[in-house]
Amino acid sequence: MTRALIVIDMQRGFDDLEFWGPTANPECEANVAVLTAAWMASGDPIIVVRHDSVSPGSPLHPGNPGNALVDSVAAVQPDLFVTKNVNSAFYGDHDLHVWLSAGGISELVVCGIQTNMCVETTARMAGNLGYDVTVALDATRTFDLRADVAGLGVVTRTASELMATTALDLQGGGFARIATTSELTGA
């Protein structure tokens, strides 16, 4: 086994659109379920990652119901379960890099939430660490983003624009390939 599926932050709290704002790709959860089923059938390892926010007001805080994994991912028996409170799954509790290295795993497929945050950060780090990384873009989703940026003023991007930019940055920058769920599963 040299490939693993990393499922990032598929948590109920991301369904709180009043907190997060408009989202893109409502097929994300169904596509993640297809990927996990394919990985379970193949016997290749699955890593499930959960974000444990340190902010008590976040839906992803461990004391809030939104911290729970969505049902389709909660039903998976992962080979490794990682909790984190930052964007990268490589900075969590269990040491992902050590576990992957010990298992001789060199190929990673990454999916989950948010495309331009934890998925992208994990994929970039994995690429920098020498893994062969593929991001299943249609098995990710994110939310509109708006920020007052020094020198630029207020910058706004839709979730769809952010997903496209992440795909461009990852593939164009040589961090990861972008693929669809059907390409990865042959479905």
Results as ranks from 00 to 15, higher is better:
181 T>G: 13
61 H>I: 02
62 P>K: 08
70 V>S: 05
137 L>R: 07
184 L>Y: 01
43 G>W: 08
168 L>H: 08
21 G>M: 12
148 D>M: 11
41 A>Y: 05
27 E>I: 06
87 N>M: 06
93 D>K: 09
18 E>P: 01
129 L>Q: 12
161 E>R: 12
106 S>G: 13
66 G>E: 09
29 E>C: 04
53 S>C: 07
91 Y>M: 11
134 T>P: 02
171 Q>K: 04
88 S>C: 07
174 G>L: 10
121 T>H: 09
22 P>L: 14
168 L>R: 05
45 P>W: 12
2 T>Q: 14
74 A>K: 11
95 D>T: 05
180 T>L: 14
142 T>C: 14
159 A>F: 07
52 D>T: 02
9 D>T: 04
116 N>V: 02
174 G>W: 09
157 R>I: 04
75 A>R: 05
70 V>L: 14
146 R>D: 13
41 A>R: 08
35 L>P: 00
181 T>V: 13
131 Y>V: 11
65 P>S: 15
36 T>I: 06
125 M>H: 13
145 L>N: 13
91 Y>S: 10
73 V>E: 12
88 S>Q: 09
90 F>V: 06
20 W>S: 10
130 G>P: 00
85 N>R: 12
31 N>G: 09
124 R>Q: 04
60 L>F: 07
36 T>W: 02
142 T>R: 04
11 Q>D: 12
153 G>C: 10
59 P>I: 12
162 L>W: 01
132 D>T: 07
31 N>A: 14
60 L>G: 01
27 E>D: 12
167 A>D: 12
89 A>I: 04
171 Q>N: 03
68 A>T: 07
171 Q>T: 08
92 G>Q: 03
47 I>E: 05
143 F>E: 08
11 Q>R: 05
27 E>W: 07
135 V>A: 15
95 D>S: 14
9 D>G: 06
1 M>N: 14
150 A>E: 10
89 A>H: 03
79 D>W: 06
17 L>P: 01
45 P>H: 12
47 I>G: 01
7 V>Y: 04
164 A>V: 06
72 S>I: 04
16 D>N: 03
154 V>D: 12
171 Q>G: 08
76 V>N: 03
120 E>F: 03
181 T>S: 09
111 C>W: 02
80 L>H: 03
1 M>F: 12
143 F>T: 09
77 Q>K: 12
29 E>Q: 10
51 H>A: 10
157 R>V: 05
121 T>W: 02
73 V>P: 00
121 T>P: 01
118 C>N: 02
7 V>P: 00
89 A>Y: 03
32 V>D: 01
126 A>W: 00
32 V>A: 11
40 M>E: 15
3 R>Q: 07
18 E>T: 06
157 R>C: 13
98 V>Y: 13
160 S>Q: 14
164 A>Q: 11
76 V>P: 00
157 R>A: 15
177 R>C: 09
172 G>S: 09
98 V>E: 15
64 N>E: 04
134 T>G: 07
175 F>C: 09
16 D>M: 01
120 E>L: 05
179 A>Q: 04
187 A>Q: 11
131 Y>H: 06
78 P>E: 15
80 L>K: 01
92 G>D: 06
23 T>G: 13
182 S>A: 15
25 N>L: 08
160 S>H: 13
15 D>Y: 11
174 G>C: 05
151 G>T: 04
161 E>W: 03
71 D>T: 09
